[in-house]
Amino acid sequence: MIWLTWRQFRGSAVMTAALLVVLTAVLTLTGPDLASRYATGIASCTQDDSCARFYDRFFDEYQLPFLAVSLVVLLLPALVGLFWGAPLIARELEAGTHLLVWNQSVTRGRWLAVKLGLIGLTAAAATCLCGLVVTWWSGPLDKSAFPELAVMAPLVFGARGIAPMGYAAFAFVLGVTVGMLVRRTLPAMALTLAAFAAIQLAMPLLVRPHLIPPVTSTFEISEANVSGIGIQGDTGSAHVVLGPAVPGHAGAWALSSDLLDPSGRVIAGRGEEGPVKVSTTSGPCAPAAGPPNMGACLAEVSRLGYRQRATYHPLDRFWPFQWIETGIYALLTAGLTGFCFWWIRRRLS
């Protein structure tokens, strides 16, 4: 049975292995160089306090490979579900070969067990390896990335650590289940992709924020959490736009970032213009008073009582989240696997 599984699987396995070996080799060769450039950059920027600029420059330089490898890890589970999972049984049902193989002296339960075990474990192991290598390689870049692409950000989180392994195992069994129910390869592939994409969107948007209760806290207004400020000298109005950063919690995942007025009322959400009643004719926020000083102006806004209220998950929850999420996907995988065995014995002809 193992021989047959391998005989049917070896083509795509060898091709995938070759691609992963190339990717791993490239990352292993370029990783140390990346890390040493980061280390020297940090050493020199701490002396003249220009690390913010170094981060931007460093990340800009590698943004393209950073996005590319992250995308590979994000897409790998979907591809596993699409090309390994969905056709596994659907193709047999389509060609009628299930009638051939299920009449050898092997029960179909055992047939399914070997197929799921061998290919599922290969998929999980390959994705796990890929995810960990990418996590190691992009370590320096993850530290330099702006908040939208930090490791806790929904897009990047799924391309780091061990979670991709859970995604791949789940996507594979999802594909198998859909293929078994739909019984046609192409529709099964399309449906698997749609279902998996929907689940992968629902997870960070609806589920992950609540896996651990988020922290809610208020912070003073400063350059750390403000992404823009606008002052009209002629009308005397001013506004502040808050960004996703949380002061003192670098790399935190901000679920919300609201601007509060002195009475504690929310006047603007993240990225919205919040009008602030600050003097634009005199004091640090007056354009007439010489070259604009953003820091001093924001300090004045903060002194008037404006605050940022942020709901967020700090960076040190990265690994707890990874474990919990991998566990959830492992449970989903186990559930679908159980369903597959029940269906193949009871319902499938």
Binding site: Q8, T97, L99, L100, N103
Partner: peptide, 13 residues
């Protein structure tokens, strides 16, 4: 032993 209708075999093998 069972030989199914249309005698399916694995086309790729």
């Amino acid at each position: 032993g069972f030989v199914a209708q249309d005698t399916p075999v694995y086309a790729g093998l």
